[in-house]
Amino acid sequence: MTMDPRGGSWFCEDPVSTGQEQVVQRICTRVAGDGVNVAALPLGGLQVWLDNPRHRWRFHHRMARELRLAGWHTETGPDRLLLLGWSAVCLSHRARMLGAALTGRLADYDKTAFTAVMIATRLLHEGFPAEELPAEVESRCADALRWPTRLDDLDGLERRSSLEPMRLRLAQVAGLEAKVARRCGEHLALASKVARTVAGGAGPDRTRTTGRRPSALGAGLTERMVCVSVPNMADSTAGATVTAR
């Protein structure tokens, strides 16, 4: 375990955690499209490179931005992107962004209802099938909210650290993500209901859960309590884990 004196960020030399490669692959593919390669580094962390060299610099920086928003420290090289472990600075920024979403856009249900009405009305005028309208409106509202996709990207990720301060940061983020996922689910349920109303009751009731899956929607302080209860072991392999479900 080493520390970056510039930003107080900790970089884990532990082996890549369960699901991390798949999560990074999903995030980078969403940003850069197909042709993304992810592999583990010998001393911990991951390297990401693209098959197509065109616009490499632009995609590297876009991928780095999304990975930093998830809480990782990244370094951009000439031909690849390096992911070097959890960053206290990036995790704090993620917590601020999640908190801002809860008090900002995700607190405005009227905007979601208005957006759903506008989308549904326009689609109906364009001849979109009424029975498919609720699902389509919900999908477009999810894209507008942005957080449902970002939370889905982290499905299955095991987040761990042997350091208590980092465990607390990870647990804080996990708790905020669960709140954001629940709030997103409420917004999308509203969007689906509005679309059914516009369509004259056509379409099935909403059954899709967006963001974290039902097992995580009931999570509140559980992640934090589990995290704090695990002793801070000197052995890096004994670090506590927080899993995104």
Rank of each mutant, 00 (worst) to 15 (best):
L145P: 05
E186F: 04
F59Y: 15
P42H: 03
A181T: 15
L43T: 02
L157C: 11
M3Q: 11
T76I: 11
G33R: 15
T18I: 13
P5F: 11
V16K: 02
A64R: 03
R196C: 09
A32E: 02
N52D: 14
R26E: 13
G239H: 00
A202F: 01
V117Y: 07
K193N: 06
D205F: 02
L188E: 14
L67R: 11
A174G: 07
A95R: 10
A178I: 08
R105M: 11
V242R: 15
S192H: 15
G45I: 01
Y109V: 01
R26N: 14
V31K: 11
D51M: 06
G8Q: 09
S139Y: 07
R150E: 15
G185E: 07
L50N: 10
L46S: 03
D110G: 11
L221W: 13
E131C: 00
A191K: 11
A219M: 09
A219D: 07
V198I: 15
E136D: 06
D51F: 00
G239R: 00
L168G: 13
V180L: 05
I119E: 05
I27F: 12
L69H: 08
A144G: 04
S215G: 07
P134V: 09
C12I: 00
E131N: 04
G218Q: 03
Q22D: 15
Q22K: 07
L190Q: 04
E126M: 03
A120N: 07
E136T: 15
R182A: 12
H73A: 13
C141W: 03
T115C: 08
A120V: 06
T76P: 01
V198K: 08
A219E: 13
A40R: 15
E164W: 05
L190P: 00
I119G: 02
D108G: 05
R30G: 12
F114T: 12
M3G: 04
R58N: 08
V198G: 05
A240T: 02
G44K: 00
I27G: 08
A70M: 08
R140F: 10
D108T: 04
A135P: 01
R94V: 01
L217E: 14
L133W: 02
G7T: 13
G35A: 09
A64L: 04
